[in-house]
Structure formats: C-alpha cells, structure tokens
Amino acid sequence: MDYLFQQLINGLTLGGVYALVALGYTMVYGIIQLINFAHGEIFAAGGYLGVILLSYMASQGLMDSHPWFGLAFALILAMGYCAMLAMAVEKVAYKPLRQSSRLSVLLSALGMSIFLQNGLMLTQGVYDKAYPTEFTHGGFEWLGVRVSYMQIGILAVTALLLVLLNTLVFKTRIGKAMRATAQDKVMSALVGIHSDKVISTTFAIGAALAAAAGIMVGLYYGSVRYDMGFVPGIKAFAAAVLGGIGNITGAMIGGLIIGMVEILAAAYIPAGGEYKDVFAFVILIGVLYFMPTGIMGENVDDTRV
C-alpha cells in the first residue's frame, strides 16, 4: 500500500510541474488560438535564471543564512523576467502577424522556439548546469512513504499559483477582460478592452507560471540544460489538449493525469519505464477519441482564457 502511495506522491509532483507548464499553452491558445511552441523554452529560461540567481546567492553565503528568502526571491525574479521575455516574444514574433493566417503564426512560434533554445545554448553552454541543491535533499518518512521537502515545496507552490491564477481569472477585472477577449475579440474591444494589452498579459502570466515550474524542476532534479524545455513542453502541451485546450481547469487536470499515468505505468507495468510515454499518449488518444474536445471540453466557454 505504501508503495502505491509513494508512487502517487511521485506522480503528483511530476503532474504538478506539467500542470504549471500546460497552463501557459492553454491560456495562450484560448486567447489567440496559437500553439505557442516557444513556451517550453520560456520554462527552460526560468530554470536557467534560477540556477544563475541561486548559485550567486549561494556563493555570497545567502543560501545558508536565509534559504527560504533566497528561494522566494529567485522564484519571483525569474517569474518576472520570463513574463517580460514572453511579452517581448509576443511583440516581436506574434503581434505583427495578428492579421495573418494561423499557419504563419505557428511557424513563427516554431522559429522562436528554435531561436530561444539556441540562444540558451550559446549563452549558457551545452553542458548541464548544476543547481546548488544541498538544501533540497531533506525529507521525512511517514507510514513508510518517503516525502521530500522538495516534493512538498513543489506541491505547495503549484497549489498556491493555481489558486492565485483562479482568483485572477475568475475574480478580477483583468481576468474578466481575458475571458471576454477569448470569447469575442471585436466585442471586447467595443466594451473598452485593449485586446493587445490583454493578450500581452496572458503571455506574461503563462510565462511566469512556466518560470516557476522551471526553477522547481531545476531544484528537484538538480540540474538544467538548454534543451530541457522540449520534452516537458510536449508533455504539457499534451496535458493541455487532454484537459481541453483553452480550458484552465482542464490544463490542471490534464497535467496531473499525464504525470500520474507516466509514473504508474513505470511503477506497475513490467519494464514499463520504457513505455511510460507511450501510455501517456495512448491515454491522450483514447480520451480524445471519446471526447474530441478534451476532458473539460464540454463547457469550453466557461473557463476559457
């Protein structure tokens, strides 16, 4: 039984990361129907900024005296930086193509993804960069289940960000503007919403979440590499589609499902580690076969941004 619980905790942690990244895909898709391929690279940039900041603070001894402050500081700074990066990407690569066909924007997104990945490779090198992880090893054992502080940390930060996002989207005026723009861009302009600003904000919010995910992945797994955005990007995109692309709640659920399926497949199927991705995508195809719009696709309008 504790084996199952242990695996569930593992799956929850991985799923939480996927969910955070998936939100960025789904929000951008909801608002301008674009699959933002560069999103995985924003996630990687967040991971890199984290390692740069944390290594610097560690070298100054700050991580020994104020570890939690240092972590929070790095997290917030990386989120802000990536938000600005995503807004710049939007301005340079997508906004000039607002009136063009969706294919042009999609290609622009692909190009941006390659550009950012190569930019990371050129500036940060091809080697893995190690996180200062000394303070993340701890954990406790409870009823035979081992839970590390990092897992708790990832789950707590993920939950907090999800709650904040929900508040933002459903309770505030900018959230209403986002939902309105997603539903009807012309109409929302006519009720006074500056759609360019709302689109820009959507990119920024998605990127901030991805940056948080990037740092947590770096801390949890111990290192980052310039191409780290690719695989989680694909998985998170799959999660967004699984949940019903454009749907915020769907992205969260999709992320958790993909994470869980991967872990449980590796845990319970003999030599399943080899095929865990296959299982994740089989579930995706299966769900889409019966629910073509994804799990939360039915009320796609309700929570879409």
Partner: peptide
C-alpha cells in the same frame, strides 16, 4: 459574453474606467 454571468458582462464594460494592474489584481 455568453459564458459569463449578467453582472460580469456589465463589469467587463467598466474595464476602461478602472486602473488596477495584474500585480494588484493578484
């Protein structure tokens, strides 16, 4: 905005008369 409540539809329209940014909203 069919998926929003009646009140939200009206509140959205006041967008141009309010000024809080994202950070403040969060």
């Amino acid at each position: 905005f069919t998926a929003m409540t009646a009140l939200e539809n009206v509140m959205v329209a006041r967008h141009c008369r309010t000024r809080s940014g994202v950070i403040g909203s969060v």
